[in-house]
Design a protein around this nucleic acid. Structure first.
Length: 570
RNA sequence: CGGGGUGUAGCUCAGCUUGGCAGAGCGCACGGUUUGGGGCCGUGAGGCCGGCGGUUCAAAUCCGCCCACCCCGACCA
């Protein structure tokens, strides 16, 4: 297929990792000379990295097409009006890169393509006969992230594979969704990255249900809640959990002096009751309104769940002066007497019986505060933050928590975009109907980072063959015609057999070459040196093997092919 | 945007406390030696010490402002 001579390769390896790099994959990608940073969250991809990205793209393309999706291309530059039409100009606002064209029209660099694909649909599809449809693209996305981080994990310009399905109804949608779901498992398998599918919050994309494909790793930025017994898995953002038994006690409302006791821990210790016998108040600003959230003292509030429960767009904790302005006393706040439309309670409160809560006066709490009798809430909803040790919502076993990177996300959009953008079709009865949409994303560079993170050792990258930039790395040692001839013979044979060969023809010492070979991580290394050739031998060493195996020069190419194909099985 | 940190040679970092000629290792170029896991010797190139302003006889060093990048939080593929 092709031969790259290392003396001519664009890019260089580094002995030391740049200080900015934290994670193993980031360090290795930099050290191996695969990527170079231009600005925060903006990277160049040098030839070997680009080869790997193209291989990953090809795997994705392959699986998408197997799942019946058709590749197309949509613009990266879009009129802002499109985003106003869907109602996302504001919710996505800060992340949008804005620019003006020469006619002073505001354009955006697309961070994702739900709007454009919905626009395409309404211009192209009219009849149920055209459905279902499934399309995908691999397109550069631009997001002005609040904080790029972790090398390629979170960047501002990146390639995303995004797919979209359109179905006549929910039942049909389920088939499309499951096909994509399976394709996703296949993609990550083929790239050599273990993933777990977890329930997720759909965030700014919108829609009803979604699943994330998570690579579990300590460098991940998401918290994943897992049950080892039944397999329940969810992002902490939306993970459910079983509340432990209530510890409240019933009785008349009763004031109790609690001087200087302003935290749940202090309160429980002071009164000698478990934290689960108390009620915790937490204050938030949701879309401009102060909200009084109540949850049992041993639990924390999940802000995202609270936001979802209120159907809100934006949430943050209330500032101390805002708490005061709302008439609430931090540390001693009581839900009693608060406008119920401002109050949200967790089920742990409703079922909790009489709990110790604030008295709305400094240094005073109330015993036996009982939901329904003493106060009510406009919203009762699960707003609890699931944590390790909590009960599994399915089987009540103890939950675990691990970090993970989100590599893919698949959503049921329902009619979130088709409705506001008026995308419809005519059904068999001539009725105008709205398609059920799904969307399915994968971050391509992020996937490459995960491949490296999941496949490396102390010496360098250990590429899975399917995405390796080179199939074989040839290391000639020593000058002389004999070596040169043998190298040429093996290199040509492998290239002719369709492999991508990297040949380290540099005038470097053996140690340098071996170290770079380990760093660059091709699946197979072939060492051709004067010493071995005296006995007619070369050495084959799969990157994963600890020791090389001597092989007669005459058999080298064939053995190498076999080894490469064997490594493809891994 | 809030909190923390770092900016000195291509990379890793000293020097800053206590102001006084810009440094080391690696890398790079050249020569020699060596030649199977980043070897050794020598010579050399390479710097607006992130930027602007201030203090001072004198600023990498002290002061102020700004910028960039990294880490922690709010956000996502």
């Amino acid at each position: 297929m092709s031969i790259v001579r290392m003396s001519a390769m664009f890019g260089r390896t580094l002995r030391e990792a740049p200080a900015d790099a934290d994670s193993a994959n980031h360090q290795l990608l930099l050290r191996s000379g695969l990527i170079v940073q231009l600005a925060a969250g903006v990277y160049s991809f040098l030839p070997p990295a680009w080869r790997t990205l193209r291989k990953i793209e090809q795997i994705i393309r392959d699986e998408m097409e197997n799942a019946g999706s058709q590749e197309l291309r949509m613009p990266a530059i879009q009129p802002r009006e499109l985003w106003e039409e869907s109602g996302r100009a504001d919710s996505y606002g800060p992340v949008l890169f804005n620019l003006k064209d020469r006619r002073d029209r505001t354009m955006v660099l697309a961070p994702t393509h739900e709007e454009s694909v919905t626009d395409l649909f309404r211009k192209v599809v009219q009849s149920y006969r055209d459905l279902p449809q499934s399309v995908f693209q691999m397109q550069t996305k631009f997001r002005d992230e609040p904080r790029p981080r972790g090398g390629l994990v979170r960047v501002r310009e990146f390639i995303m594979k995004d797919a979209y399905t359109f179905d006549v109804d929910d039942d049909a949608f389920q088939l499309s969704y499951l096909a994509m779901r399976q394709a996703y498992h296949n993609i990550f398998d083929r790239c050599g990255v273990p993933v777990v599918a977890v329930q997720a919050d759909s965030g700014a994309i919108g829609g009803k249900q979604s699943e994330e494909f998570i690579f579990l790793t300590e460098i991940g930025e998401d918290n994943i809640i897992l049950c080892q017994s039944c397999g329940y898995a969810a992002n902490q953002e939306r993970a459910e959990f079983a509340r432990s038994d209530a510890a409240g006690s019933d009785g008349e409302l009763e004031e109790v002096a609690t001087p200087g006791v302003a935290t749940i821990d202090d309160l429980a210790a002071f009164l000698d009751v478990p934290a689960s016998a108390t009620a915790k108040a937490a204050f938030f600003l949701v879309d401009g309104d102060p909200i009084f959230a109540v949850i049992r003292g041993d639990l924390e509030v999940n802000e995202l769940k609270l936001l979802t429960a209120l159907d809100g767009l934006e949430i943050r904790p209330l500032l101390p002066e805002e708490v005061e302005a709302a008439g609430w006393v931090a540390g001693y706040a009581s839900p009693i007497g608060v406008d119920p439309t401002r109050v949200v309670v967790d089920p742990s409160i409703v079922d909790g019986g009489g709990l110790v809560a604030g008295g709305n006066k400094v240094d005073v709490h109330l015993r036996h505060v009982t939901y329904g009798r003493d106060y009510t809430a406009g919203v009762i909803a699960d707003i609890g933050l699931a944590e390790a040790g909590h009960g599994c919502p399915q089987c009540d076993s103890a939950l675990e928590m691990q970090r993970g990177i989100e590599l893919g996300h698949i959503f049921k959009l329902g009619t979130r975009y088709a409705d506001p953008m008026d995308a419809t079709f005519l059904d068999a009865d001539g009725e105008r109907r709205t398609p059920i949409m799904g969307c399915y994303g994968i971050g391509v560079e992020r996937l490459m980072a995960a491949v490296v993170q999941a496949n490396h050792d102390e010496f360098g990258i250990v590429w899975p063959h399917a995405v390796a930039p080179f199939d074989v790395h040839i290391v000639p040692l020593g000058a002389g015609d004999e070596v040169a001839q043998a190298v040429q013979q093996v290199t040509d044979a492998l290239a002719d057999a369709g492999l991508h060969v990297l040949c380290d023809d540099r005038d470097e010492r053996a140690g340098v070459k071996f170290n770079d070979a380990d760093l660059l991580g091709a699946p197979l290394r072939i060492t051709i040196g004067a010493r071995g050739l005296k006995d007619g031998l070369v050495e084959l060493k799969p990157r994963r093997a600890s020791e090389p195996s001597p092989t007669p020069l005459a058999d080298a190419a064939e053995a190498a092919l076999a080894a490469v194909h064997a490594s493809a099985e891994v």
